[in-house]
């Protein structure tokens, strides 16, 4: 009986291969949709002339806003222009981070599909995903604090702005960092296994 090596384990068909393929397709479609929404949110916030879509509402004309289909502000008809701008900034940060995270995830899945699940690159990518989450969350908090500061200073009214601090993103971020450590340790073990004759 031959000893299990990385090569013959890789060659064995796995039930998870199909799941990886499906997940890759879903993530690719999601990324395209997110890039589309990101462009429309930026276009709306920047008031690009003749921009075809209005996600998150039009700050200059709150009455003419379109319903938000993804993440957005135009759920509360009482939202002020400043609140819509703030929400647009939050949307842009979150969607941009989401696009980055999905791109990294797709690279991880590509390695997994190629049979190289436990490589240091995957650990590094998971760590980068975690950092992207941390930066995005802290940036959103900074935007909210700035908006409230503007409101307190009486410069603009941010009536209708939804501020929701949830532990869920932080739990996901912690999981990404924990998984990164797991992948790095697994890569070390695999290297040793591959170099055991």
């Amino acid at each position: 009986m031959t000893a299990p090596t990385a090569d013959n384990l890789r060659a064995a068909p796995c039930a998870g291969d199909g799941a990886v393929a499906v997940l890759t397709k879903v993530l690719r479609i999601t990324r395209i949709a997110m890039v589309f929404v990101l462009v429309t949110v930026i276009g709306t916030a920047a008031r690009v002339p003749f921009f075809p879509l209005r996600f998150g509402g039009d700050p200059a004309d709150p009455e003419a806003r379109w319903p938000t289909v993804f993440i957005g502000a135009a759920v509360d008809p009482d939202m002020t222009a400043a609140a819509i701008y703030t929400q647009s900034a939050v949307d842009i940060i979150m969607i941009a981070a989401g696009v980055f995270i999905i791109t990294e995830m797709l690279q991880v899945l590509r390695n997994v599909a190629a049979g190289n699940a436990f490589v240091r690159e995957n650990g590094q990518r998971l760590r980068r995903m975690g950092y992207a989450g941390v930066i995005a969350q802290l940036s959103v908090y900074a935007v909210w604090i700035a908006a409230e500061a503007i409101a307190v200073a009486g410069i603009a009214d941010v009536e209708g702005l939804i501020i929701e601090i949830s532990p869920a993103p932080w739990i996901v971020i912690l999981c990404a960092f924990a998984l990164s450590t797991v992948f790095n340790d697994a890569a070390t073990l695999k290297e040793e296994q591959d170099l055991t004759v």
């Binding site: 000893a3 290297e191 040793e192 170099l195 055991t196 004759v197």
Partner: peptide, 11 residues
């Protein structure tokens, strides 16, 4: 791998 000294272990 064994000959070039890259091996980390030998069974």
């Amino acid at each position: 791998i064994l000959k070039t000294g890259k091996a980390k272990a030998i069974r």
